[in-house]
Amino acid sequence: MGKNISFLRVLIIAITFLALEGVCVLLISRNSILQQTQLVLSLRQVQQIGWKRIAKRQYANQLETTNEMLVRENQRLLAQNQWLETLVNEQAYKDSSCFLPEPHRFQYIAAEVIRNETDRQHNVLFLNKGRADGIHPDMGVITTQGVVGFVNGVSEHFCQVISLLDIDRGITGTLTRTSTFGPIRWDGRRADRVVMEEIPIHTSFEAGDTVVTSGFSQLFPKGIPLGRVAEHELVDGVSYRLYIDLFENFRSLHFVYIVSNTQQAEIEGLLL
């Protein structure tokens, strides 16, 4: 009770003080232009601190929307890039009177990673896109930084992706310096490194050379950057084993693109 009264007394004194000081400030600002200017400047400084904080908060709030917008834009640019690459590759055949540009082969569906594993020998991811979004098994999953994996199971709204970080699965990659290709797999040791095998002994390469997707599989487009050569070792005196540092950080995956090959069925039909 005593404490409450004491608090109330302090509160009343504080309010009286602030009110009287407010009257003083008002009187001062009305009676002198110099003090008024100084007061306005001081108020502006305080306001600026508030404005900066509000702007920061607004920026943080808008990050999610901006991110989604960027993902959509990236998706559009990837498709456009693919189309332009096709046109460039076909340039050599332009003289031919029967030249027809290859139709748009790959399409990209943006998806968000809802679960991710990197600490097992057979890692999987779950994405928020499923059958309803046109996803089916054996579709590739990429980011702008490299290959993530391929779709294994699909439900109505979600899909399960076998990660590139799976010791039993692999892809084919190409060394950009010499266009030499070889199988790439994960050795189960480091989440930021994969192994490229069967590189012929005569192949010229250096640490730092870039490795990209070969485009031989129907899952991924050609030329998606995967990583850089970090180390190498000679295997049985006949080939090199290259250790590739991945561009993609699998521990911070958030947005990915599911690759849809519009001609996959046609090509696989010929392979059978």
Partner: peptide, 20 residues
């Protein structure tokens, strides 16, 4: 403070503000 400012022809409120 107000009386002091008034009689001293100072800027009204200045002494009062500091005195409080």
């Amino acid at each position: 403070g107000l009386v002091s400012d008034l009689l001293g022809n100072g800027i009204l409120g200045m002494s009062a503000s500091a005195m409080m």
